[in-house]
Design a protein around this nucleic acid. Structure first.
Lengths: 351, 351
DNA sequence: AGTGTGAACTAGAGCGCTTCAGAACGTCCA
DNA sequence: TGGACGTTCTGAAGCGCTCTAGTTCACACT
């Protein structure tokens, strides 16, 4: 079972009869040696089964690992049940991969965000944080490691790059359009205010201490228009099923709301279903509005009125910021991406 | 701008007045030094802003990186549009994270799987491959690096751990139940046979050279029952929208199929929609059957008959295999997880 | 006093690579 | 003919850590 030791740079150098530095150059600086020699080295390497410089050793020597970490607020399946997150992540991944960087995923555990130990051991030299609670331990862990960081949709941290959208403004926009068309009785279906898995109506106290920036802003945007006494139903995750249950609960009040404001499209899809469940019609009986404008919004039944934010762009931009930080760039001003209201067929004036 | 150099083990050792080895032990082998000294070291470390041993250097010294790579056949958003994949990935991630390992994601590019360069540079010491074409370059790259590998739903490779489900048997099961209940005119909606983005009817030649094992097996399972002249529509990805379009195309044939066999639930959801689009009813006019049994299948309208495979289990098991390989374990026999037919309301005998 | 023992700590050799300051050897032009 | 210059290749010093094989020391036992 004495499997042969894996070949190293030295092995190859010895075999070809050149110095280790030259072999290294063959891989990293082709201009530093003659094409012929390089060819010879690469051939010998291949015949020895040498797959190129060891990434870890290289990282140690160069002091960067060509990897960006991604810290997530939730588990993977929960995260990706939400198309919006997938799209952002995809934008990030392709940007980063295009520059030969890997993506190190740190999914959230129970209490909002990855465990600090995970963060401490991750081989990444920049991290991107998304949908973490404002006080996530992972954030602290990344800081004490001195990792450059870019946050998406999160509160500013000193020395941190940031990309965000105007969640408050977007939500306000949506609510205003409904208000302007005559709606006066609203219900709000939101995703988590706190990372504790709560499902149900939201109390004022809970609202006041909201630990997710995005939730807070969207909620405040809605309530700013509809009034703070608007009933709010919290779902632990942004999922169709939970949205359906929440909407059903809100719609069973009397007088029944004439419009449902949802914190995400995913929740709105559930709301659409809930309206049908109760034998009512969208938008005749109830208007439903979403947030994100994921691709499915356009094909929903009926097509969903929603607040569009440039999701892929958000991921791509975060990726670029990360790469820039990696290059020693300064964080710079936060980038604010535009939102807009996309009117489709799930909203109409009340009867 | 001369930011102070980051503290290292040596810095801390110097400050406390002990050897580097002792500081290392303070972190990795608390039993090797007195509790008091350990405490003192940790305190000093904290006050110096030392966040613990550098992961890269540690990996070099220990020769393992505490990370498992995950090679994917497609881009992230495409992947996660498919709930099945998310669930598998989530199972994998939690297993792996529970053992203090990171997940390095290598999403696929255009031509089936991550780029070989990406794989060559990934800091992982075991990789899991999922839904790659059988001949993906990433597979070769991982091999030449000598990385232990576990493949999910892919053909056996020498010296590779493997978890799989009986796709052929599952598909056969589904088709047989329909056949037994009297159906004779079928249509099949499948996801990609080749990583070339093709959408449309499938030719015999294309079918014969299918490069994804899963596709091949499910297809063959269906066609084994329904006959090889059954029309098959290929969708480039497993998405609701593409499934809808494909189903619509198949249903416009005359005579119209009385049953649609879909390679995934996601495609089946699209098919459900397509039937409605045409003013027909499920299952009265058309039966629809899926594959995977994702959570949404139960809540579809109507609830979807489908082939269940233990998705989370699959991911978890792959994770465990990966961890075992990391520990120097042998690949062992492939694990075959069970499939079963879950009958719900989307299937019925033909009129 | 001599010996054995275990606990607490250290020295130093790597891990596999990059990189910088040269060395060696032309070539070219004055 | 000689020196300035370019190209090609080398030597050796790290990168920050782990780990084996010690050394030291206090204490107990005879």
């Amino acid at each position: 079972m004495d499997r042969p030791r894996k070949p190293t740079l030295d092995t190859v150098a010895g075999a070809v009869g050149v110095s280790r530095a030259t072999v290294s150059n063959a891989y990293n600086r082709p201009d530093q040696l003659s094409a012929a020699l390089r060819e010879r080295i690469l051939e010998t390497a291949a015949s020895l089964g040498y797959a190129g410089p060891d990434p870890v050793a290289r990282s140690l020597a160069t002091r960067h690992s060509a990897a960006v970490g991604f810290m997530l607020g939730q588990g993977l399946s929960a995260s990706f049940a939400d198309a919006a997150l997938s799209i952002v992540l995809d934008g990030l991944a392709s940007t980063v991969d295009g520059h030969d960087h890997c993506l190190v995923l740190m999914p959230g555990k129970d209490k909002g965000g990855p465990r600090p130990e995970t963060v401490a051991r991750a081989q990444a030299d920049v991290v991107v944080a998304y949908s973490l609670p404002d006080d996530a331990p992972a954030l602290t862990a990344a800081r004490t490691r001195g990792l450059p960081m870019v946050v998406i949709d999160q509160p500013v941290l000193p020395d941190t790059a940031r990309v965000e959208v105007d969640d408050f403004g977007g939500a306000r926009l949506a609510a205003s359009s409904l208000w302007a068309s005559g709606h006066r009785r609203f219900g709000v279906v939101t995703f988590a205010l706190h990372p504790d898995g709560h499902n149900g109506p939201v109390t004022t106290a809970r609202l006041a201490s909201t630990s997710f920036r995005v939730t807070r802003d969207r909620l405040h945007g809605y309530l700013d228009v509809t009034g703070t006494d608007t009933p709010v139903w919290e779902c632990a995750r942004s999922s169709r099923e939970l949205g359906r249950a929440g909407a059903r609960a809100l719609l069973s009040a009397s007088p029944r709301p004439t419009a449902l404001l949802c914190a995400s499209d995913e929740l709105a899809f559930g709301a659409l279903q809930a309206v049908r469940d109760l034998g009512l019609r969208v938008p005749t009986d109830v208007s439903v509005i979403g947030f994100d404008d994921v691709p499915a919004a356009e094909h929903a039944d009926p097509p969903l009125t929603t607040v569009r934010q440039p999701l892929a762009e958000k991921g791509r931009h975060a990726g670029e910021l990360a790469l820039r930080l990696l290059d020693g760039g300064r964080p710079g001003e936060p980038t604010r991406l535009p939102v807009s209201l996309v009117s489709r067929d799930s909203t109409a004036p009340p009867k």
